[in-house]
Write a protein that binds this DNA or RNA. Structure first.
Lengths: 166, 166
DNA sequence: CTTCTCAAGTTGTACTGTACAACCAGAACG
DNA sequence: CGTTCTGGTTGTACAGTACAACTTGAGAAG
C-alpha cells in the first residue's frame, strides 16, 4: 500500500520499489479503464436484457424496496441525480404502476414513494434475470475469485460512494 | 462502508457457510449490484471531473493510444457500440482536432484513426487527473489487491466483451 | 395574521449518448 | 461483369440527464 502513495511524485524512485510503483500505477489505470468500459456497457446490456425496466428505474426500485419507501429528494441525493430527473423517473414508474406516492400527512409537500405489489414482483423478476445472466457470464470463475471480486467491488464503491463522490 | 476484507472474500453476503452455491450466488449478485451502481455514477463523475472530454471520448482516445491507431469498426466492436455512434463520436473528436483519419491505402473503405499531438496531450492530461483521483480512492489498498482487482476486471470484460455480449 | 424565505416537486427546454435503419462506397468473389 | 459483403455516414428517434423557472406548502419574522 505504501507503494501507492510513494509513487506519486514519480521521483527517482527508491531502488527496489520501482517495480511495484509501476505495477501499481498500471493496475490503477487498468481498473479505471475497465470500470469505465463496463460502465458504458452496463446500460446497453441492461436495456437489451429487460426493456421494461431501465437501469435507472431498476436501481430506484431497488432502493425503494431496500428502504421500504422514501422521498424523491432522498433518491436524488443518494444517487447524485437532479430533482427533476428523479421526478420524471418516478412519474414514469408511477404511470406504469410500479410505485405509488403517498402524501405525507405531516408535510404536504412531501410524497413518500412506495413499491406497489406489481413493482415488487417486477423487481424480483428482473433481479432474478439479471442474476442469471451474471451467473452465466461468471460461470467458469472459481468461487474464491468471485468472492474476492465481489469484495473488491464493494470496497471500491464504498470508498467512492454516496457521500464522497459528489 | 462495507468493511470488506479483501483477502478473504466473505462479504457479509447471506449464507456463507452452507456451501459454495449460496456463497457464489451472493457474490454474483453483489458483483452485479456494485457494477451497476458504479455504472450509474461513472458518467456523471467523469463529466464533472473533466468537462472537456466525455467518458466515451476519453475511452476512445485511450484505446487509440493503446493500440496506436485503429479502425472505427474495431472501436465499435470492442466497446459494443453501434457503428453510427462511433462514427459520430469520432467525427466530433476529429472536429476538435484530437484525432485524425488516414485512409488505408490498401483498403479505401477503411479509415485508420490516430491520435493527433493535441489529442495525445489532452489524453495524458486527463489520464493524469483521473489517475490521481483513482489513486486517492485506492490509496489504502494493498498492491496485491489492486493487481488482482485489475485482473478480475479485465477478465470480466474480456468474457462479456467484444463478441459474446452482443 | 401577513409576509418573507425556504424546501419539495413539477415543467419547459436543451444537450448527449445511443440505437436502428437506410444508405453509399469500396472490395471480394462468382 | 454483377452480387454480396464490409466499413462508414446520415436521418431519425428516444432515454437520461441537467439547469432554470415556476408552484405549492411549511416555517419564521414582523
Amino acid at each position: 500500500m505504501a507503494a501507492v502513495e510513494a509513487s506519486d511524485g514519480t521521483t527517482g524512485a527508491p531502488g527496489g520499489s520501482d517495480g511495484s510503483a509501476a505495477a501499481t500505477a498500471a493496475a490503477v489505470e487498468t481498473i479505471q479503464r475497465e470500470m469505465t468500459a463496463f460502465a458504458r456497457r452496463a446500460r446497453a446490456s441492461a436495456g437489451r436484457m429487460h426493456p421494461e425496466l431501465s437501469l435507472v428505474s431498476y436501481t430506484l426500485l431497488g432502493h425503494l424496496e431496500e428502504r421500504d419507501g422514501c422521498r424523491a429528494t432522498d433518491l436524488a441525493a443518494h444517487y447524485a441525480l437532479d430533482k427533476s430527473t428523479v421526478s420524471r423517473q418516478v412519474a414514469a414508474l408511477e404511470r406504469v404502476g410500479l410505485v405509488e406516492r403517498r402524501v405525507d400527512p405531516d408535510d404536504h409537500r412531501v410524497q413518500v414513494l412506495h413499491l406497489t405489489e406489481s413493482g415488487r414482483s417486477l423487481l424480483a423478476q428482473v433481479t432474478e434475470r439479471r442474476r442469471t445472466a451474471f451467473r452465466e457470464r461468471l460461470a467458469d470463475w472459481p468461487e474464491a475469485d468471485l468472492l474476492r471480486f465481489a469484495a473488491y467491488l464493494e470496497r471500491y464503491n464504498a470508498g467512492s460512494g454516496a457521500g464522497t463522490d459528489r
